[in-house]
C-alpha cells in the first residue's frame, strides 16, 4: 500500500521543529510501524538525507523505548500495543499518517522523535523501591504468604513499562498513572508497606518538581496505556497520599 507520512523533524532540544512530508510506496501490512520507519530511514540515507532519530529497542512491546504519537494517539491506533507492535495493516491504503514525539515539558525532545524520559528514573529514585539490602540474607521467600488477589493486583500495577504514553496522552502531561502504578505495586505488598507513607510523599513531590501537569481524571491514560494499567491505581495513590500527610508525625 501507499502512505503519506508527516514526521516531526527537530535538530536538537533547543531548536524549532516542523512536520516533514514523505511518500512511501509498497508498504506491507505485515510490517511493524518501526519497520516501516526503518524503510523510510533507509530511503533517506540512500538519498543522502538525514534519517529520523527515534527510540526503540526490544521491538516486542516490553522495554518501553518506543514512543511515537501517531495520528493523534500515543502508540497510534489500537489498544494495548506499543508502537513496535503496531502493524501497518492498521492503516488504510493512501492514508496520511502524522508521527510526532511525546510532548511534555518534562520530556524534552533530544532529536526528531526521541525524547528524554529520565524524569521517570528520578521519580523511581525518589522512593520507588523497597529499602532492602541485596545481601540475600533476608527471610525465606515463603515466610510471608501474600493473598493471591493482592499479588495479582500488584503484578498488574507492576507491568508498567515506563514508556510515558500516559504523559504523552494526558492533555495535562500528567505522570500520575506512572507514579501511581509503582506506589500501588509496593503498597499492595507486605514488603513495601513499612515505608509506604514516605514513599508516596517523596514520589509525588518529585513528580511535581519534574514539571508534569496535574491529573484531571480524564481517564485518557488508561485507555492509551499499552499495558492497560487502570486509573484505580491513581485513586489508590490519592488515598495513600492523603492518609500519609494526615498521619505523618
Amino acid at each position: 500500500m501507499n502512505i503519506t507520512l508527516k514526521v516531526w523533524r527537530q535538530k536538537g532540544p533547543n531548536q524549532l521543529g516542523a512536520m516533514e512530508t514523505h511518500k512511501m510506496t509498497e508498504v506491507s501490512g505485515d510490517m511493524s510501524f518501526l519497520e516501516m520507519m526503518d524503510v523510510l530511514n533507509d530511503n533517506l540515507i540512500r538519498g543522502g538525507k538525514e534519517p529520523f532519530a527515534f527510540d526503540h529497542d526490544c521491538r516486542e512491546g516490553i522495554c518501553g523505548s518506543c514512543s511515537m504519537f501517531i495520528n493523534g494517539e500515543a502508540h497510534g491506533p489500537g489498544r494495548n500495543v506499543t508502537t513496535c507492535q503496531l502493524h501497518m495493516r492498521s492503516f488504510k491504503d493512501g492514508e496520511t499518517i502524522h508521527v510526532e514525539p511525546w510532548r511534555s515539558a518534562a520530556f524534552p525532545v533530544i532529536k526528531d522523535l526521541s525524547v528524554d524520559r529520565s524524569a521517570f528514573d528520578r521519580i523511581i529514585q525518589s522512593g520507588g523501591y523497597v529499602s532492602v539490602n541485596t545481601s540475600g540474607a533476608t527471610i525465606d521467600a515463603n515466610a510471608i504468604p501474600i493473598p493471591k488477589h493482592d499479588a495479582d493486583e500488584a503484578f498488574d500495577s507492576a507491568t508498567c513499562i515506563g514508556c510515558g504514553a500516559c504523559v504523552a496522552t494526558c492533555k495535562n502531561s500528567s505522570a500520575m498513572l506512572f507514579v501511581a502504578a509503582k506506589v500501588s505495586q509496593l503498597s499492595l505488598l507486605p514488603q513495601g508497606k513499612p515505608e509506604s507513607k514516605e514513599r508516596v510523599i517523596r514520589m509525588v513531590d518529585q513528580m511535581d518538581l519534574e514539571g508534569f501537569g496535574n491529573c484531571t481524571n480524564t481517564g485518557a491514560c488508561e485507555v492509551e496505556c499499552p499495558k492497560g494499567i487502570s486509573i484505580t491505581n491513581i485513586a489508590r495513590m490519592n488515598r495513600e497520599f492523603l492518609s500519609s500527610n494526615l498521619t505523618s508525625k
Binding site: K6, W8, G17, M19, F69, N71, G72, E73, H98, E100, R103, S104, A105, A106, T169, K171, N172, S173, S174, G211, F212, G213, N214, T216, N217, T218, G219, A220, V223, E224
Partner: peptide
C-alpha cells in the same frame, strides 16, 4: 500549570478517542 506542562502542542491530537469532551474542557 497544566498548560505549562506542554509548551509545544501536538499537530494532531485525538482526545475524543480516549476521553470525554467534558473531561477535557472543565
Amino acid at each position: 500549570q497544566n498548560r505549562k506542562a506542554r509548551p509545544v502542542k501536538y499537530v494532531v491530537e485525538k482526545g475524543n478517542l480516549n476521553s470525554s469532551w467534558a473531561s477535557r474542557n472543565m
